[in-house]
Design a binder for these strands. Structure first.
Lengths: 214, 214
DNA sequence: CGGTAATCTAGAACAAGTTTCAGACTTGAT
DNA sequence: ATCAAGTCTGAAACTTGTTCTAGATTACCG
């Protein structure tokens, strides 16, 4: 019979996972080392600096093992993003935004996240590029990131059960968030411009507010 | 002195180009063959199917020459997108949108473009993935695509000199457009959902309309 | 404990993007 | 027509993501 339980197809820890045998302690440690190495390399030189051989070496794992845990570089980086997002969500929970309106609070939250990303622009580059470059084979993982982001935004809005209109607005905000990050990372938009775009899109929230204004 | 003028760093033809010696007829023909081959391969299997060696072979050009015209696969695909966008803009000009409000016309225009993309989903995949994956070295070309997209949207709005607020709204619409396409292409959103997102974000236009409602 | 099935390792091998190079070919100027 | 400079070609080499393999290790069941 099995030795170390079969490794799950690169999934996160905390959130509920349909069916993936729990990891051995050593496996958990390996996974953690890999994610750490990934984030570290990404922080240096972004997407390109995360080279699978280097990740394997840094995390003291054979290349084949790395691929067993994360079936591709994009899977690895998306998992890295999941990891960082949890961090961020935790941090944000502690100091909730203070704005008056939901729109203000969401913008405030996103700008806070944006400032965090600015501190590690290379890491941001690696994660966001991986996220948008991901193909169908990474959909479940990308979806998980999306859900986490949605949760953060809904938290900021202070909503428990949003209307379909509000969910649309949130989706649009996420779209804008990702795409604005991309333009910033590739040097085509300034920090100020990203700020404006975020504030602009957040106005949509007012349109779908409790008053149901259309 | 030079023979065939030095090839420009992969730029489009029609739009004004800062400084790039005009192409020989044969060079122009090569460029065209390359773009055609690129689009053809992309239509088959998307981003992955556009293999540089195959593009070179299909377009009867040496690999080195291909790289002289387009310094990377991403450059090539972004140029392919520029090419297709011109087409599209021309087509759209002929049948302007009929909606009452600017928001309706923009949504109508984008949905028309979306339907065109649905006819060649693989091509769309290749172009959009290249666009969002592009790094700084492709910024000028990506920017050109962005300007073209902006022009299409402003056309639909029927505006000549937009206010800064309106430009913000247009940028947000573009963000949403790109990101929504990505989610559709990677199978994480349905066509219906993309439609909703586009319609949702287009409401922003009303917020920044002539009335200057904040 | 012993057996056994799965995992991990080291390293080779493969695939596709990118670079490089020597030599043949074009072009525009004289 | 000739020449110099730049371009194109064909092919090999290099890089990095990904796959594969044989053997050493590990985990768990009985």
């Amino acid at each position: 019979m099995p030795a170390e339980a079969k490794v799950p197809a690169s999934t996160a820890r905390p959130a509920a996972q349909p069916a993936s045998p729990p990891l051995t302690e050593r496996q958990e440690a390996r996974r953690r080392r890999i994610l750490h190495a990934s984030a570290q390399l990404a922080s240096r030189g972004g997407f390109d600096a995360v080279q699978m051989r280097e990740v394997a070496e840094s995390s003291q794992v054979a290349l084949g093992t790395l691929y067993r845990y994360f079936p591709s570089k994009v899977h690895l980086l998306v998992a890295t993003m999941q990891d960082q997002l949890e961090h961020m969500h935790g941090t944000l929970r502690k100091k909730p935004p203070t704005g008056e309106t939901a729109a203000e609070r969401v913008a405030e939250t996103l700008m806070r996240a944006f400032r965090a990303l600015q501190r590690e622009p290379h890491l941001a580059d690696a994660m966001v590029r991986a996220l948008t470059f991901a193909d169908r084979s990474v959909s479940p993982e990308v979806d998980q990131v999306s859900r986490q982001t949605t949760a953060i935004i809904l938290d900021a809005m202070g909503l428990d059960d949003p209307t379909p209109e509000q969910l649309s607005a949130v989706r649009v905000i996420e779209h804008t968030w990702h795409s604005a990050l991309i333009t910033w990372l590739s040097g085509r938009a300034s920090i100020a411009q990203v700020k404006i775009d975020i504030e602009t899109v957040c106005r949509l929230i007012d349109l779908t507010g409790p008053g149901e204004r259309l």
